[in-house]
Design a protein around this nucleic acid. Structure first.
Lengths: 168, 168
DNA sequence: ATATCTGCAAATGTTTTGCACTTTT
DNA sequence: AAAAGTGCAAAACATTTGCAGATAT
């Protein structure tokens, strides 16, 4: 599915990609932005601005919240990150570079995030937009679900849910 | 699709439904809540807490913002209203009682909201949740689209988009 | 050199809450 | 009478912004 670990080469490549994006917009590469790229690549799952801020605060080179927000906007624009709104008041991000498109299921009880893809749903969305005379630009599909185990046993310890929570 | 106008009987029925819900939770029916039910039934499309607050402020019987928020939560819980997060920083509501389930397309340019339904997508969502060992509780599907006319002519005056904006 | 960045603190916008008083049950 | 609701102002929260000094090009 994804890489097992982050190599120096991976990191450098991501930084290069981001720098190319910045150059095109006449923006500058800075230490803070490099730190953000690194921290973001280490994240396994979904994270908030505050998660990232804290991760960087813990490291030797903290970055202010204002800079985190400004950087996240650029990382999203450059398509290194993808942002989602899961209707809980905080925007969530995930690594997008080298990852395939997917949608999300969220357990309404434990808030675990599970990724899934469904080619047929994708096609039908495309068709629906076309039928209404529009061109599909983007979409957001989130299924709010309950684990069956949770429902039956009162806990949510499925493998997938666990995996999803391992957000470095 | 919907009713043409709101009759006194419709209003009374909605108030009764809400009152039954309140009674079950040992909560009280008040003038403010009655005003909110009336105002909400008059809304044709999607609206924010602030829209509702302003509508009530304009009427003879204003309701405070705090009460609007508290009331909206109850109206949603009682299923007279349905709430959505369209990722623009404000929760939006629409009448749910006597309305069929639907999803939304939003024009990324003019923010017009178009409703649509697709039975096959619904079924596939159900299946996707089941395949992953979950039970589907709810879902949120929003297509972000561009009108073809908009793309070609720089305006968004489609019939459906116009209709969607007629939010009383 | 000059345009862009950063951190800070202040501002923003939406939603929530504590509290004293009022209304429903 | 008791429980719940209301309005107000203040708080909470995530996010954005103005600005003076620092940094990248």
């Amino acid at each position: 599915m994804g890489r097992v670990s982050l190599t120096e080469a991976d990191l450098q490549q991501a930084i290069d990609t981001f720098e190319a994006f910045l150059r095109e917009k006449r923006l500058k590469m800075t230490d803070q932005r490099r730190q953000m790229v690194r921290a973001v690549l280490e994240k396994r799952g979904h994270f908030t601005a505050d998660d990232l801020y804290r991760k960087l605060s813990g490291s030797g080179e903290p970055v202010s919240m204002a800079t985190v927000y400004r950087g996240l906007a650029l990382l999203e624009e450059s398509e290194l990150l993808e942002g989602h709104d899961f209707a809980d008041g905080q925007r969530r991000y995930e690594r997008a570079l080298d990852r395939e498109h997917h949608d999300h299921m969220i357990c309404v009880d434990c808030r675990a995030v599970i990724e899934f893809t469904n080619e047929r749903i994708e096609k039908l969305q495309e068709q629906a937009a076309t039928q209404h005379g529009f061109t599909l630009d983007d979409h957001s599909l989130t299924l709010f679900v309950k684990c069956n185990e949770l429902r039956d046993n009162g806990n949510c310890e499925r493998r997938e849910a666990k995996l999803a929570r391992q957000n470095a």
